[in-house]
Design a protein around this nucleic acid. Structure first.
Length: 249
RNA sequence: AUCGCUGUAU
């Protein structure tokens, strides 16, 4: 059953809904976990009604499955439905609270999000703070984002990447470079974000140089480089690069 | 002891 579930989860992660559905039906038995994976598969594709149907059909629910349903509403900006679930939960975890934070920021309710984090949540973690950080950064409140970043007791790669992306997306190349250089370690997300920052500023040469030095590329980093060329109208260069893309990407 | 839930890149 464990291996059925892992395969099911693999399809779910990739968004291969049909395969996930077929596998789910073919499985010899379903554990609570199988149901939860199916629910998340629908949620990830934005099929809220179907996720909800699974949620109602499931023979049992636990904290994780309820969190998944809550997260689905949250991602969709349905604060009301999210709250309804939240209020009725017999037990909550940090993921529960963090999902609620998403519900607030997806609604654009920043004051609500802050209030929730500071007054309602009994504990906050790096995920909670990064959620707020990126929400502010996306809206251009980079100084607020920076404050949240500075005040983090600990920063993981997503926190660093979130701050980096904030500057990158707002076209603040200098600050982006500053963050990038200050990072204790850089994963592919960080490299790709920095590449996108150069591309956005029109510095394709720097972008390309950076791209060449990425230790471990993936489809996203290739897409970033390719679309940088395309957007600049350098279709020939894009085509040349495209042909060099490794098969496994 | 990474089979499921929350934050970051195109």
């Amino acid at each position: 059953l464990v291996s059925w579930n892992s395969l099911l989860n693999m399809y779910a992660q990739r968004g291969e809904l049909l395969k996930a559905e077929q596998l789910f039906e073919r499985m010899p038995e379903h554990s609570l976990l199988s149901w939860t994976v199916l629910l998340s598969a629908y949620a990830r594709e934005g099929r809220i009604e179907q996720a909800q149907r699974v949620f109602e059909t499931m023979p049992a629910m636990d904290l994780v499955s309820t969190n998944s349903m809550l997260a689905a509403f949250a991602e969709n900006g349905d604060l009301e439905s999210a709250m309804e679930i939240f209020d009725e939960m017999p037990a909550r975890s940090i993921s529960t609270f963090n999902a609620m934070l998403i519900a607030y920021v997806r609604c654009g309710d920043f004051a609500g999000a802050r209030w929730f984090m500071e007054e309602v949540m009994e504990e906050r973690d790096v995920v909670s703070r990064t959620t707020l950080l990126t929400a502010y950064a996306e809206r251009g409140y980079l100084d607020v984002a920076r404050c949240l970043f500075e005040e983090m007791p600990n920063r993981d790669s997503a926190a660093w990447n979130g701050m980096l992306a904030g500057y990158a997306q707002q076209g603040r190349l200098e600050e982006a470079v500053g963050v990038f250089n200050a990072m204790p370690e850089r994963d592919t997300v960080a490299w790709t974000t920095m590449l996108a920052a150069y591309a956005k500023s029109g510095d394709l040469a720097q972008g390309r140089a950076l791209f060449e030095s990425i230790p471990c590329t993936n489809l996203v980093s290739w897409n970033a480089m390719l679309s940088a060329y395309s957007k600049a109208g350098l279709l020939a260069e894009a085509g040349r690069l495209h042909d060099q893309m490794p098969e496994h990407h």
